[in-house]
Design a protein around this nucleic acid. Structure first.
Ligand SMILES: [Zn+2]
Ligand SMILES: [Zn+2]
Length: 141
DNA sequence: CGGAACGTGTGG
DNA sequence: CCACACGTTCCG
C-alpha cells in the first residue's frame, strides 16, 4: 500500500546458506535491511548442488525498491553483462558477498603472511563490494 | 521456456 | 584496482 514493496520480498538469509564465523556482520551502524523474517527453508536443492547457490536481494533496501533502472549505467546500457542496474544493486547482497566464503577460506593464509598475487587477487574482488568492510571485519588481524 | 540477476574469472 | 563478460541459478 504505502510502501512500494516489490513482489520480491525474500527472506534475509536462508538458514544454512553461507555460514558465518560468528557476528562480524554489522559494521559501524547500518540501517539493517536484513528483514528479520521467519525462515522457510526451500527444499534445498543441494542434492547435486555445489553450494554456490545464488542469493537474492532483500527487497527492503533503497536500491532494491528502485522502481526501474537508471538507464545510464553500464549494466543498463550493456545488458550482455547480465547485471542489475547499479542503482538497484541490493546493499545487503553487496555486504554479504563481501564477507563471504573466500575470506574465511583464505584468511589464515594471508594472515600468516602476504599471500601470493593470485590469492590476493580474489580478496580484492570481494573487498571491492563494500569499502566499509574492506577495513573493519577480520577478527584475525 | 524465458527473462533476470548473482557469482566469478579475466583483461585492461 | 576497476570494469566487463560468461555461466549458472532462480522465479514466473
Ligand atoms: Zn542503471
Ligand atoms: Zn536489498
Amino acid at each position: 500500500m504505502s510502501q512500494f514493496q516489490v513482489p520480491l520480498a525474500v527472506q534475509p538469509e536462508l538458514p544454512g546458506l553461507y555460514d558465518f564465523p560468528q557476528g562480524q556482520v554489522m559494521v559501524g551502524g547500518f540501517q539493517g535491511p536484513g528483514l528479520p523474517m521467519a525462515g522457510s527453508e526451500p527444499p534445498l536443492r543441494g542434492g547435486g548442488g555445489d553450494g554456490r547457490k545464488k542469493r537474492k536481494r532483500c527487497g527492503t533496501c533503497e536500491p532494491c525498491r528502485r522502481p526501474a533502472n537508471c538507464g545510464a549505467c553500464t549494466s543498463c546500457t550493456n545488458r550482455r553483462t547480465h547485471q542489475i542496474c547499479k542503482l538497484r544493486k541490493c546493499e545487503v547482497l553487496k555486504k554479504k558477498v563481501a564477507l563471504l566464503k573466500e575470506w574465511k577460506q583464505h584468511i589464515p593464509v594471508w594472515a600468516s603472511q602476504t599471500p601470493c598475487p593470485g590469492e590476493r587477487r580474489h580478496l580484492d574482488h570481494i573487498c571491492r563490494s563494500q569499502p566499509n568492510l574492506g577495513e573493519a571485519s577480520s577478527p584475525f588481524l
